[in-house]
Structures are given as C-alpha cells and as structure tokens.
Amino acid sequence: MNILHEFEYFKPKSKKEALELVKSKGSSAKVLAGGTDLIIQMKEKMIKTDAIIDISDLEELKGIKCEEGKGAEILACTKLVDIEFNADLKKKYPALTYAVSQLGSNQVRVMATMGGNCCHSSPAAETPAPLSALGAKVVLASLEGERELAIEDFIHGNRKNALKEGEILYKFILPEPVKKSACRYGHIGLRNAMEIDCANMAVNVELEEDKATIKNVKLVMGSVSIKPLVSEAVPKVLVGKKLTDELIATTGEAAQSEAKPISDVRASAEYRKDVIGALARRLVKEAYEAAKEA
C-alpha cells in the first residue's frame, strides 16, 4: 500500500512558474503544499496523478501580514506552526490560532499549510469554520489574474472546491474584527490530539454600544454537513437580544435543528447532534462574555 503511483516531479522557482505549470499540466497534475493530505491519498490510491508541482518552498506564497487596524493576510503556503505561534494573529484572531493548534500534531503542523487544509475541502477540516466565522476571503490566482471569494463559497464540500483548472489558492484575507466582537472555536473528538473532529464550531458575536445587546452573530459548524454550515437559525434567535440562560438553551436547539450529520466510524449522527448543541451553548456564551471586554 505504501507504493506511490509513478509521477513526474516539478519544483517551480517562482509563483509565475508555478502558475504556468499548473496551467500547462492541467488536471493531470496535483499541487503539493505540505503533502499531509496529498501523500496519504496517493498512498491509499485514492488519487493518481501524473505530475506533482511542489509549491511548498515558494517564499512568494508564504508569510503573514497582520497590522493594527488592517485585518490580516495569510499566504496559502504558510506553515500551520507559523500561524499557531504568530503573536499578532493570536491577539487579533485567537479562535483561528487555537483551531490551528488543534490540527493534527506538531509534526503535521510543521509540514501542513492552511491552503492545503481548505483546498482538501474535507467536511471535518479544522480551519474553514473559524475562517468563515471571521468573514475570511480567499484569493485564487492564475496566469489570467486573481479573483476573490468568501471562504464558504470556495468550499463546495466532500473534497470539492471552486478552484478551476490553472488556478491555485494564493492567500487568505481576514477583515479587521469589529469593535465589541469576539470569536471562539471549539471541537469535540475522541481524544485530545491527532483525532479527526466529530464536530467543530466557530461563533463570532458582535455587541451593540451597550455591551449587552447582540448586534450580529455568525455561527459556523464543521463536520455536520458536506461543507461548513453557516447557521441561519441562530442569528434569528439572538440578534437584538441580551443573552440569557433561556436563550442559550434555544441557541443550542436552533443549531441542532440545522445540522445534518452523518453516522460514521467516528460518531453516530445522534451523538453529533448532541455535541453540536453543547458546543453552541458553550461557545455562544464564551464569545458573548469575551465581546463585552473587547
């Protein structure tokens, strides 16, 4: 099983050269970033590819810009450890750096990238839910130019996404968090580390000037549908209200009513629904309390 199907290996020296290769090789090639999904899929013969285009060492695709008042930009091939331990990101987007710190193991995070996590487009992935709750966009690049998409429009689910032939994911753009807002992430798996989430969730709460009334809330669930699911019911429950224990309970039920989890080796659909309720209750409360201080 550990024998890979034959392929040609290309290591472009610039983003432009990478884009030329991605275009000329088309669907016969796969881009390699950290390889932590790709190599496993190749080993398991889930995919066969005639060519690998290794973009893992392209400095033009790596880096984090996170300045006061200006949101952040994270290039696609930035290693997850560099996101996890970036002090500016940690301060401004703790939900994202926490989610990243929960992905795989240290070795996996040293190798893997956020671009790879989103392009793999697995329903259980760690970073799409917090990225979506934070209002992140992706920039896709090709020889023809660039286009921008909201993260939830990029991921179509079950390993499918909006990338067209000749395109790569170039970077993530995160808006500056609005005042009196806070985002929190949580996940439930079978053990502490290295598990694949049986459900995950990110919640972003924004308060009115009175620091009590909810102005906006975005709740995004992972692992309960083929793609990250943005709740429509939860904002209806919470917007314009002050958080009470009763509302917290209703929030849990609202999130549960929308989740469409499956049963698989990791958990039954029923258990996943319970977990969604528990995560929603906990995270809404945590984000609400944090937003008061923000």
């Binding site: 390699l32 190599i39 893992s56 070795q107 996996v108 040293v110 190798m111």
Partner: peptide, 13 residues
C-alpha cells in the same frame, strides 16, 4: 531544525 514526518515527505523534495 523542525520535527517532520519522513513517511509523508518525498526524498526528492
């Protein structure tokens, strides 16, 4: 200097 997994790394890379 960083811990990585040689079972997921192509030698050529």
């Amino acid at each position: 200097g960083k811990a990585q997994l040689s079972c997921l790394m192509l030698a050529i890379a």
